[in-house]
Design a protein around this nucleic acid. Structure first.
Lengths: 208, 208
DNA sequence: TAGATTGTTAATCGATTAACAATC
DNA sequence: TAGATTGTTAATCGATTAACAATC
């Protein structure tokens, strides 16, 4: 199944809302109900749910458990990947403690840092190692993903080590432009981009 | 000028790259050159640059200074907004120390936290106050933006205080679904969403 | 049966891509 | 002049929106 980015970005929102409903004892949900909870256009939700392949029942809605299973599969949450995180500064340790990754199917199995005093620590249950052991440890653990939270000027060097360590994707929280082989996917997380969108929309709304 | 989100997300990347070129002494840039640096399709860059209104010169490219000025205006970086940040935990203090906000035209003027031991501190040059003084301080400082980095179960209450404090937008780093008046823009920053996109694309690439 | 809700098909809209003309 | 690069117009593509048929 080939999903466009806009739909792909909505799926985790559905998943989170549906899990909440399930834990409150619900067993089915209508597209309109889900749309209302999330503040999304009901037509969009209906179409998205149709594309999960789960059949809804007129007048009753969709079976919650099957919908959750389908969404977990579509978002890749059921694949159980492991990640390493490099750069255990403030942002890095904040990410180590973020519980949402587990629910999305990602387990961070090791942290790395250049500062000796940060190594040998255990943060949020994750051991931190010297960055010199990165490639070797990556290979040993079979990590699928590398999370980059180092200073921008070290990003490329660490990325090279991650690639040598066999990761299949890099989640880049630095502004650096990384050079990696085509086989490795890089996704950039850029707060300056988000902020620009926010400021522009804020001004836009005020003009209207 | 009404810009679509895709273009709006590319503008800060252009801006950052152009600033780098300027600091290296360049005075003009071609669309193709900029595209190569960022790994973006040259046709897209050419069209985006055309929409800035800056005239390029065939065989020479665009004047760097005018392009930077135009991009600053389009992204809102020249408007100089102030923000307050609520929840000075790991993520919150990481954001307080992020230098990119300043360059994007945003200054964080105050932090707030519920824990008494975190108040009276100064982090990255920003004073931290008790969350009880939030609304009052917001009004006094005339903050345009509230950055929400508190636990999810307190998000709505803090959002209410921010709204009462007169902010025009809320940058929500919690998974909570906020209820605010229509006049206040809410932008959600959701790592679970980004991760789902990343994992899906990673799998997609491996199938290909 | 009636009515709510799903499922599907068509229309609209905006972004990307392609092709080519204009200009230094 | 020749050639590189911008600027513009048209074609394609995908997502959203709208309308309506199908079904419990």
């Amino acid at each position: 199944m080939n999903l466009g980015t806009p739909m792909l970005q909505r799926l985790p929102l559905y998943l989170r809302a549906l899990r909440g409903m399930e834990s409150e004892g619900a067993s089915s949900v209508s597209a309109a109900g889900l749309a209302a909870v999330l503040g999304i256009d009901p037509i969009v939700v209906r179409k998205d749910l149709a594309r999960t392949g789960v059949r809804g029942v007129p007048r009753r809605g969709f079976p919650l458990d099957r919908l959750i299973a389908a969404l977990r599969r579509l978002t890749g949450a059921d694949a159980e990947q492991t990640a390493v995180l490099v750069g255990v500064g403030k942002l890095g340790s904040a990410l180590l403690g973020y519980p949402g990754f587990r629910r999305a199917g990602l387990t961070i199995v090791a942290g790395f840092d250049a500062a000796p005093e940060r190594c040998q620590m255990i943060l949020a249950g994750v051991p931190v190692f010297p960055v010199g052991t990165l490639t070797e440890t990556c290979l040993r653990l079979g990590a699928a993903l590398g999370i980059l939270t180092v200073p921008a000027d070290r990003a490329q060097r660490v990325a090279d080590m991650l690639v040598a360590g066999g990761v299949r994707a890099i989640w880049n929280f630095t502004p650096a432009q990384l050079e990696v082989p085509d086989s490795v996917m890089v996704q950039r997380e850029d707060l300056a981009v988000s902020l620009a969108v926010l400021l522009h929309r804020m001004h836009e709304r005020e003009r209207a």
